[in-house]
Design a protein around this nucleic acid. Structure first.
Lengths: 232, 232
DNA sequence: CGCCCGTCGAATGTCAACAATCGACAACTT
DNA sequence: AAGTTGTCGATTGTTGACATTCGACGGGCG
């Protein structure tokens, strides 16, 4: 069967389409943190009526990307170092548990696949140059893989959904910011070997250490940025 | 100033009111798991138009209390032993972290307050009779208190919000089901003493053990119920 | 000059009507 | 009898109009 007929045609409502557009704009920074969203203006720009836009906004509220004040309006959630810290702490907790569960569930073939994934990561140019360890979302993302392997639907949905979106808003993937590339890759390797050991405590600790390091590094980077802003 | 004027008057939109009504109906079982929600019927019953109802439904979708199939409709999320297990595993992970953080942040007075809270719990009649350990939500809930003391806004919001609502749907508080009352209270006491020790690992383990025990007990109770359904 | 009140426009909240979709059921064909 | 197609009613998705609320600004008063 040709490609055109291999997948089912799925209706996409305006609410779905608008949700995606808003999400992309928030993550790209086109809608800036703290910025007010005016329903009529945006609905006109998107060529839809306010109804579906309101529904999309409700969804993004639930995902903590937008904040609402009744009868006043909706704004893009503001970022702060404290909030990033809170978020990474939550991720540490959940991803540690995901890794613990995955260590009991992943097959040997799946663990080999993780090694291959890391090998392909290390061949990428921006990593070799230390520019950053950015990953596509989905199946090639190291953390997605582990969350999916946990076998816990709710946990997977949380880690790969809302919490992932929040991270992206910080222009940050769960691995590293610039400057910590080779260490992050080493930590990923350590996580895979801990998974292979089938020791749940070890697996959980490896992941938690990795995310804690990323959190500490982010704190340092933000403090440094603040100090530089003061002196200039 | 009299009580009537001690708090500000806050506007409550129809969306807010409808959200609460739906939530209450789901938790009380008036809207049963799997049950279809018909917008026009429900809107008529509630005396509002479909617009605010749709917005409320979007919110509850985001909280995993409702499932939507585009162009077909919305139904109450179905319960299953696997989903309860997933949920308790997530809570174990998050509440363990909350307890770890709280062990570093709670004042001595706050820990004494926790002891007093447990003392008041142990004086309650249904606990003495072993009938169950149900707590009001809010400040008198043991787990709420610890989550709030974590100092992590996101974590607190998750534990005391959506995840708490999901638990309530299972007619279950994060402590115990009937039959495990005195053990749960003992475990609560152990958690408080671990908090008082200021040892983060110990605090985290005490909370995780408590929730893991609740999870294992829930599994046994569900299996027992299934076996009894088979023989009758 | 500072404070309070009233007005107005922008924006949000809600409503009801129309458009589109889906599933159930009946009729038709093989 | 089984499978396919067409129809229809119930329901969902969207639109645009009206009602309500809020904040900004200007005018009046002390």
């Amino acid at each position: 069967m040709a490609e055109s007929f291999s997948t089912k045609v799925v209706a996409k409502s305006l609410v779905d389409a608008v949700t995606e557009r808003l999400e992309a704009a928030i993550i790209a920074g086109e809608l800036a943190p703290g910025e007010r969203i005016r329903e009529q203006t945006l609905a006109t720009a998107l060529g839809v009526s306010r109804g579906p836009l309101r529904e999309a906004i409700r969804r993004l509220e639930g995902r903590r990307l937008l904040d609402r004040k009744a009868n006043v309006g909706v704004s893009v959630t503001e970022l702060s170092p404290q909030r990033l810290d809170d978020l990474l702490t939550v991720r540490e907790s959940l991803e540690g548990m995901a890794c613990r569960l995955a260590s009991q569930r992943m097959s040997d073939a799946e663990i080999d696949d993780m090694r291959k994934l890391l090998a392909s990561h290390s061949r990428r140019r921006e990593i070799a140059l230390g520019e950053g360890y950015y990953q596509e979302s989905g199946d090639v993302d190291f953390h997605f893989r582990i969350a999916a392997a946990s076998g816990n639907e709710l946990l997977t949905s949380m880690v790969t959904g809302d919490l992932y979106d929040l991270l992206r808003v910080y222009r940050y993937k769960s691995s590293t910011m610039t400057g910590r590339t080779s260490q992050a890759l080493e930590e990923h390797r350590a996580i895979v070997e801990a998974l292979a050991s089938r020791d749940p405590d070890q697996a959980e600790q490896a992941m938690r250490t990795h995310i804690r390091n990323a959190r500490l590094y982010a704190q340092m980077a933000l403090e440094k940025a603040e100090k530089e802003a003061e002196t200039s």
